[in-house]
Design a protein around this nucleic acid. Structure first.
Lengths: 213, 213
DNA sequence: CACCATAGTGACAGTCACTGACAATCGACA
DNA sequence: TGTCGATTGTCAGTGACTGTCACTATGGTG
């Protein structure tokens, strides 16, 4: 067994390529526009064959939204580790709060990738659309978690879906609606935070547990 | 000027082709799966060149979601004609209620297309995803309408975005979340209605007008 | 240190969605 | 009936994406 610094050279190299592709991709997207950038260009910029690109990403959008998928994972994990005492709505709001706040603790490189992704989403409606579409997948996973958290067995009930949809919508509005003015990550995080508070205050007590209809 | 029944033969023929394409497309999608159906097959089923397909629809998804786009138009128009006295949230909820209820008054052919579209969405996550993504476009248009309705000039403020996002989310949950069990259009409409009521009861009075933060 | 199983890559061929351009055709209307 | 404009088919081309196969480099093993 060689010393093997931490993880194999292989893994490190792969990570490097992935990051290089993301950075080259985001920069090209921002410089030339998303649709006018070809996979070939991105691959060429990293000196990798186009075929290899697809071994790292499922497609152009997968690269562009890579860091959004990252957030989805973080959200899922955070929700799973919320104390059982929290009501569904509170747990979800706190989850999004915690995850977005956690962004400020990212490394410089990642911070730039987040802001670049955001600028790209502002400039590319089609991409925003697919991002929102993907969020639907996250929603159903979260609804499943909420249902399990409530002790339910089968598929999530309507109330769970609704609670998840509301909180997700609030987070999304905070993220996107408030506009492209600022490019600062801290400001973005603050905005999401505010919007979650705004949402929180829109509901009546017990909104996330009462049986309706 | 010939008698010209109602509108020119040209227009009628075009409509017929469009409907034929939609029906052939939906049926093929349901029979073989969305991704395993090619444009070529759909075009062949209607005896039309593939190139012509793209003169009727922007793409495969555009055909599949054609009747969803229809609903979006109906929603926009209905919101524009809601009385000015209604608060934003109420106006939106009533808008969705009215439009969905209006579905029960569609012709038989359209009803079938709606239910087929719904079954297709249940069977094709990717399509559901793009449907949700498109809804984001609708949301920003609705937010603009709500803002104008409030007398605001510039881009919609956060509260407007939030209200729209909440109501849209509720409608969507009613439409999709509750599950694939029933295929009856009336049942679907009822479900959306119920979910909107459930949502309505989740908010505290004045939620859609109070200034937050 | 030599060796091997295997992960990662490049090259190639192929499918499919989608677009532009041009020519042929069909309906509208005088 | 003849002309004009809309509709369509054909053809060629781009770009996203996939399967396959051979080649190289890596990490562990004797």
């Amino acid at each position: 067994m060689t010393t093997m610094g931490q993880i194999g050279l292989r893994e490190r190299k792969k990570l490097k390529t992935r990051h290089a592709l993301i950075d080259a991709g985001l920069d090209l997207f921002l410089a030339q526009g998303y649709e006018h950038t070809t996979i070939e260009q991105i691959a060429a910029a990293v000196e990798v064959s186009p075929r290899t690109f697809f071994r790292y990403f499922a497609g152009k959008d997968d690269l562009a939204l890579y860091h959004m998928a990252d957030l989805e994972i973080a959200v899922t994990e955070e929700l799973e580790s919320r104390p059982a005492g929290e009501s569904p709505g509170t747990a979800l709001i706190n989850t999004f709060r915690t995850v977005t706040r956690g962004l400020t603790a990212s490394g410089q490189a990642d911070k730039e990738r987040y802001t670049k992704t955001r600028r790209l989403l502002d400039a590319t409606p089609a991409l925003l659309s697919t991002a929102v579409g993907r969020a639907a997948g996250l929603e159903s996973r979260l609804a499943g978690l909420v249902a399990r958290r409530q002790g339910a067995e089968g598929p999530p009930d309507r109330r769970a879906c609704l609670v998840v949809a509301f909180v997700t919508a609030a987070a999304r509005v905070g993220f996107e609606c408030a506009g492209a003015h600022e490019e600062d990550l801290a400001a973005l995080v603050a905005r999401v935070d505010e919007t979650l508070t705004l949402a929180e205050r829109s509901f009546r007590p017990g909104w996330d547990t009462l049986d309706g209809i």
